[in-house]
Structures are given as C-alpha cells and as structure tokens.
Computed example of a mutant assay.
Amino acid sequence: MKVLVNGAAGKMGREVLKAVHNDTELTLVGGVDPSHGGKDVSEFMGTSPLDCKIYSQLEEAIEAVHPDVIVDFTTPAIIFENAKLMLTKGIHVVIGTTGLTEAQRQELDSIGRAHYANCLVAPNFSLGAVMMMKTAAELAPYFPDVEIIELHHNHKYDAPSGTAVLTAKLINDAKQKANVKAAEDLTRESLPGARGAKVDDVTIHSVRLPGYVAHQEVIFGGYDETLVIRHDSLSRLSFMPGVVLACKKIKDFAGLTYGLEHYL
C-alpha cells in the first residue's frame, strides 16, 4: 500500500511518517503541508534523506505519487473538503482529524461507495483506548450509572473529545439495548456547567492542561461499589499501531467506517 500523509509537518503527521516508513508492508510516497512544500520528508523524521517529497497542495501530491491510501491529520476547518477530494479520486482515506458531523460522514460514505474508495474516521487510534470503549459498553448494562472524565493537552481543538463522545454513545446504545436506565440525578448546579455536558444519558467532564497527552476515565457507580476504567496515552507513539493497522485493513471495509474498533 502506497501511503501519503496529509498534515505531515504536524505533531501527529511526523509520527505517522515514521510509522509508515518503518513498516515493511507499507510504502511512504510523500507528505502534504502548505508551509513546507519541496522539502524532503526526512526533515520531519530525523533520518537521512529519503528522496520522498513534501507537497504544498493535496491535489498536486495525489497527481504526483498516486497513493493507495491517505492518512489525514490536518484541521477541522478543511477536513470535509479534503475528504471529498480524496474519495472522489478513488483513494482510501484514514482520518484522525476531528470535526466531521454525522451528516458529513453520511455524505462521505456515499461518495466513497460511488468511487470504490473506503474511509475510516477514528476518534482515537490507540488500541488501548479502543479496548476501553468496548469494555465500557460491555459493563454499561450492569452499571448504568456512569460518567466520563477526559483529560487532554490545552492545544486540543475540541471539547469534549471525540473519544469521550463515542464512548458515551456506545454506553448509551448498550443501555438502551439492555433496557436499563441510570438513577435519577438529584444534584442541582449552583454554577452552570458544574455537572459537565450530556451526551444522551452520559455526563462528560473535559480537562485541558499542559502536560497531558490523551487520557480518559470511565467511572461506573454501583450498589456500594464503584468501577473505574482508565486509559492513558503517554505519547503520540501510542496511536501509531492503530494508524498502521488502518492503512492495511481499509481496503476490506466498504464505505465509511466510524471507529477503529470495527477493524479489530
């Protein structure tokens, strides 16, 4: 699989460059970054020159290297238009950029199917985080009273995180399927927002501080007991096995898939 990295000079993009280059089943064919066109990707990888170029424009890169799959870690402002372009060109797309709405994901699914190009949108590429979400959904029917605390660095674009929102949705789906409900919350806020934000029936609290990377606790309350699942990504390296896995498996999953757990 020939892989192009969009957003190659960013913090996540640099790690993706290295992860793809180091995998024997993938071939790194270039990167895209508007501020660094013409440079060798090695400048962002700490390696000797690789004769592999950074392009300033996405369409230019596609025409030059004809990738099989593009990994996108750019910004919410441009991800939707980027994804439409890539899928229309018949290229598989692995998206780690946040900000796509459900309606936009449905549109991308239609575009992808029409051009035989698949798309993965993953709120989190950490295999440990995916396992945390799956475990939380399995516990929800037995512990319907649950809240989520997610902690990230203070440069993260969104709050709550996509991981926390997806975790809450998986928990709510599991509770509805089991026909269980949380106990009534009798607390009344003396300061608006003190109890966090709701995704359906699950409360999420977001922490944004320097020093954090990506962390989440799912706290279940039971009859005289509590149960806590916690996952910590200690660096961006923790996301790379999931990105590599996605590049290898995306050709087998038609249309748009939301969440890396479907690839496991």
Rank of each mutant, 00 (worst) to 15 (best):
M1C: 00
V5E: 05
G7V: 12
A8F: 13
G10C: 13
M12T: 13
G13Q: 07
E15Q: 14
K18W: 14
K18T: 13
K18C: 07
D23G: 03
L28C: 06
V29D: 00
G30A: 12
G30W: 07
G31C: 10
V32S: 01
G37D: 09
G38H: 07
D40Y: 14
E43V: 08
F44V: 03
T47E: 14
T47R: 15
T47Y: 14
S48W: 12
S48L: 14
L50A: 11
D51M: 08
E60N: 08
V65H: 01
V65K: 00
V65L: 07
H66K: 14
P67F: 09
P67S: 05
I70W: 04
V71Y: 02
D72F: 07
T74R: 08
P76F: 04
I78S: 09
I78K: 08
I78G: 02
I79T: 01
I79H: 01
E81S: 11
E81F: 03
L85D: 01
G90E: 02
G90W: 03
I91Y: 01
I91M: 01
H92F: 02
V93N: 05
V93M: 03
I95V: 08
G96N: 03
L100P: 00
E102K: 15
A103C: 07
Q106C: 03
L108W: 15
D109N: 15
S110R: 11
I111N: 13
G112V: 11
G112N: 13
H115K: 00
P123E: 06
N124H: 04
F125P: 01
S126C: 03
L127Y: 04
M133N: 12
A137V: 15
Y142N: 14
F143H: 06
D145C: 03
D145E: 04
H153E: 00
Y157C: 01
D158I: 02
A164Q: 12
A164W: 12
V165W: 10
T167G: 05
I171D: 05
D173A: 12
A174F: 13
Q176T: 10
Q176M: 13
K177A: 02
A178H: 15
N179K: 15
N179G: 10
N179D: 12
E184F: 11
T187I: 02
R188H: 05
L191I: 01
G193D: 05
G193Q: 08
G193H: 10
R195Y: 11
G196E: 11
G196W: 09
A197V: 14
K198Q: 12
K198S: 06
V199M: 15
V202R: 14
V202D: 10
T203E: 06
T203I: 07
I204F: 13
H205A: 05
S206F: 05
R208N: 04
R208G: 00
R208A: 02
G211N: 03
Y212G: 00
V213D: 03
H215K: 07
E217F: 09
F220I: 01
F220L: 04
G221F: 09
G221Q: 10
G221W: 05
G222M: 11
Y223N: 13
T226C: 08
V228I: 11
I229Y: 00
H231C: 02
H231A: 07
R236L: 11
L237F: 14
S238Y: 09
M240T: 10
G242S: 06
C247I: 02
C247P: 00
K249Y: 04
F253V: 03
F253H: 13
A254K: 15
G255D: 01
G255C: 10
G259I: 11
E261C: 10
E261G: 12
